[in-house]
Structures are given as C-alpha cells and as structure tokens.
Design a protein around this nucleic acid. Structure first.
Lengths: 233, 233
DNA sequence: GGGAATTAAAAGTACTACTTTTATGTCACA
DNA sequence: TGTGACATAAAAGTAGTACTTTTAATTCCC
C-alpha cells in the first residue's frame, strides 16, 4: 500500500484525493456518501469528514439530493501542498512540474533580491555553506547529496526574503527539485554554470547587492526553464 | 451577523477560522471538541468536521488525549483563499496586503510576458477593452467602476499567461485591489501614469511583445509597492 | 403544454455507544 | 532518590442509527 494510512480518515482522504487529482473521476462525476462508505468499508462519518476536507480544497462540491460532485481542475486549490503532492504523484506530473517551475522562475529572483536586503548574518552564513556544499557534491555522481544542498539553499533564500508567501513556497521548490533530479536519467552531474551561479548568489546576498542577487537568480531560473523545455514537448 | 452562515458547518467554520487567523487563540492553545460543541451549541459531529477542515489548512492539529492545538502562523496554508480572506478581514490586514502585493509584484510581470505569447485574440480584445474602461473611469471619483475594470484587467492577464498557478492568483489580486481601493481614503482619482501603463500593457500583449509587456507590468508593480510603503510604516 | 403540488433521494444534523491512543501519575525496584 | 514499568483516565477516533432538511424530479391538475 502506497498511501500512508495511520487512521481511516487519512487513508480514505489520500485514496480519494489521489484518484480525483489523477482525473480518475472526470469533472461532473457524482459520488454518493453511502456508496463511498461501503466501498472503503468505513462509516459514513469518516466519509463525510473526508468529503468536507476535499470540499475545502475545492476538489468536490457536496449538494443535497445530488451527491458529491467532482469539480473541474480550474476550481481546485492548486496551491494546497496536499493537492500539489497528489498531482505530482499522478499522471500529469510533467505538466505540473512545468507550471511550478514557471512559478519558481517568477518568485525566486524577487525573493533573492529581498533576501539581499533582509537576510540575517546567520542566514548569509547558511547560504554560503549550502552553496559550497553544492560545489563539493557537484561532481562524481553525488546527485542525492547535491539535491539536499540545492533544496536547503533555495529554502534559505525564500525564508530570508522575509515574505511569508515566498517562505511558504519552500516545500514546492523542494518537490520540484526532487522531481527533477529523480526524473533526469541521473547520468549527468549538475550543470557547472548553475553551481557557479548559486555561489555567486550567496555572495551577492552577503554583500547586500539586491540587484545582482535578483539577476543571478533569474539566470538560474532561465536555466531551469530551458532544461524543462528540453524534457517535455 | 457578518459570518455567512447557510448551514451550521459553515457558520462554525467561519467563526473559528476567523478567530484563529485573527490570533484570538495564540499558538499552542488547546481546544476541546466537546467544549466547542457546547460553545457553539451544535453536535460534536459538526465540530469534528470543522476541525478536520481547519486541520487540512494547517491552522490546527488534533491529537488524541490532548485536544485540538492551534498551530503557529508558519504552518498555515497561507495560499488557501479562505485563509487569505479571513486574514484580510482580521487585524493584520495591512501586513497581509503587503506580503500579497510583493507576491503580485513577482508574479504579474512574468505572467504578462507569457500572456503576450499565449493570449488568444479574444483575450487581447478583452484586455484592451478593460484598459479603455479604466481610462474612461479614471477621473471624477468613479473609483468603484475603475476597480471593476482594474480587477478584470489583471485577471485576464493572469489567465492569458496559460499558467495554472498564475491563473489561480486572480482572486488574490482581486482582494488586494479591492482592499487598496477601500482603504485608500477614496479622495484621489487613480494615478494617471498607472492608467497609461495598463493601456500600454494591453498594446504590448496585442503586439506579442513579451519583453515590453513584462517591463511595463513591472512598472505597475513598482508603483503598487511604493504606494504601500507610504501607507504602512 | 405549463405550472403547482407531491414525492423521494441524498446530504445534513444529532446522539449515543464504543474503541484507541497516549499523557500523566503511581508504584515498585534498584 | 531516581528510574523504569505499569495502570489510569481523558480525549479524540469510529460506528451506527434515527431524524431533519433541502431539492431534483415526477406527477397531476388546469
């Protein structure tokens, strides 16, 4: 069983959420609470609580005398980390990775600029450290170790921006980077140019050079976009 | 009563969600299901369903033998439209408006650039129309009418970008613009420079000039940021 | 053929009984 | 006196049932 299930609720939620985001139930499909309860062999209580959660994610809509209707993609809360995880686990993972990468390319440069203004000395240190870690692991097929530093690096930048909305994208970035590493056929070491750019971003932030930090991060983003355009048609 | 309440669930959810996001229950506060049920004079069933939803927003965490614990701000799903609405209605509205505006300033320029590449003829037309509407209502204290066009304009840009994540920020932008208009003391007409910029963005998109569309939108964003720096200390 | 009244299906709500987890306090033993 | 195993009870989790409310759809009357 792949769906982490400590508790009936979690299990049903994960299963249903995954199925819906995977497009298993096309929009407009109506599910009946009692049928779901029977299908999962749980009480109606459990199903109702699950439906309420799915409703809050705008994946479904529950109406009396009708049932639980699956909503079209456009109404989904696509920023909900849970929804993101489900979608990344499902069929349209490539599409999802692309739109998230575009989001990154918009947000991260601005975040880096702000980080240059707001980063604490500790954050500057952490940033440099992670960048050096990236350099150290950038050769010789140490992709997993590299990934850890890469994620940590971007997390620090987002946090140091001082903007709550940016900071909360740390998980998204982590998912994207992980997805990329694990789907890239894992043959090649990371692009040396990208590694250098990260080091330079750390430098720029340390020197409080917002403009440079933003520009450099934009270059990183462009690289990520290019890479993706190659991957997907 | 200000909390829209068709159904017990909605009522309890709105009340509790608002209270928590307003910081009425400091992080770490534990609420007991039965007490809530008594307090709201509803069944435990209703409270449980509400708690499950709040849990999915990471506003609270429910643990056996402990109760429902209010989580710190850092864990909240700050991108959940519902959470955003609650917070905008609460005490830290100014802070919230600022962080959302920064997010806009990062996203919208990129979205505009993409819109220039992907916008359909219909979207181009719509964009021009809204921009002209802004011009028409930009003088003589027609702030409400202006706001409608402004919101529509930005929504079209975000939709036309073709990126799902951007498109879903339409509501956020609408909230921010509305909040701004309604809190600006409503004396002055909109900045003529901003109006002109919108017209030019529509032009650039129509002419498929991505670079120009992005640059112009960035100017609009800078304006919005400046305005906010004046508003809040 | 159209509109009003009826019906029934499904979700919403309530209540009650029971299970499971687990924080905390107790007691025995070293 | 401190420490670890054990017992206790508190609170959430689950189940089942009975009832209410809404409302789509059918029927029936004009």
């Amino acid at each position: 069983m792949t769906t982490s299930a400590q508790g009936l609720h979690s299990h049903v939620l994960a299963t249903l959420g995954l199925a819906i985001t995977a497009g298993e139930y096309p929009p407009g499909t109506v599910l009946r609470t009692d049928e779901l309860a029977q299908g999962f062999d749980v009480s109606r209580t459990v199903v109702r609580e699950v439906v309420r959660v799915l409703e809050s994610m705008h994946l479904v809509e529950s109406r009396r005398r009708v049932g639980v209707t699956v909503l079209p993609t456009e109404s989904w809360n696509v920023y909900d980390p849970q929804v993101i995880r489900w979608r990344l686990a499902g069929a349209d993972r490539p599409r999802q990775l692309r739109s998230l990468t575009v989001l990154r390319s918009a947000v991260e440069p601005v975040a880096a600029g702000l980080a240059a203004l707001h980063a604490t000395p500790a954050q500057c240190r952490e940033l440099t450290e992670q960048a050096l870690g990236m350099v150290a692991t950038s050769r010789g097929r140490q992709l997993e170790a590299y990934l850890v530093h890469d994620i940590a690096f971007h997390r620090v930048v987002l946090n140091a921006s001082g903007n709550e909305m940016f900071a909360r994208l740390g998980d998204v970035v982590a998912e994207v980077l992980t997805g990329r590493t694990h789907h890239h056929v894992m043959f090649e070491d990371p692009d040396p140019a990208a590694v250098t750019l990260h080091v330079q971003v750390a430098e720029a932030v340390r020197e409080r050079d917002a403009v440079r930090a933003e520009a450099l991060t934009r270059e990183i983003a462009v690289g990520a976009l290019k890479e993706l355009d190659v991957l997907a048609p």
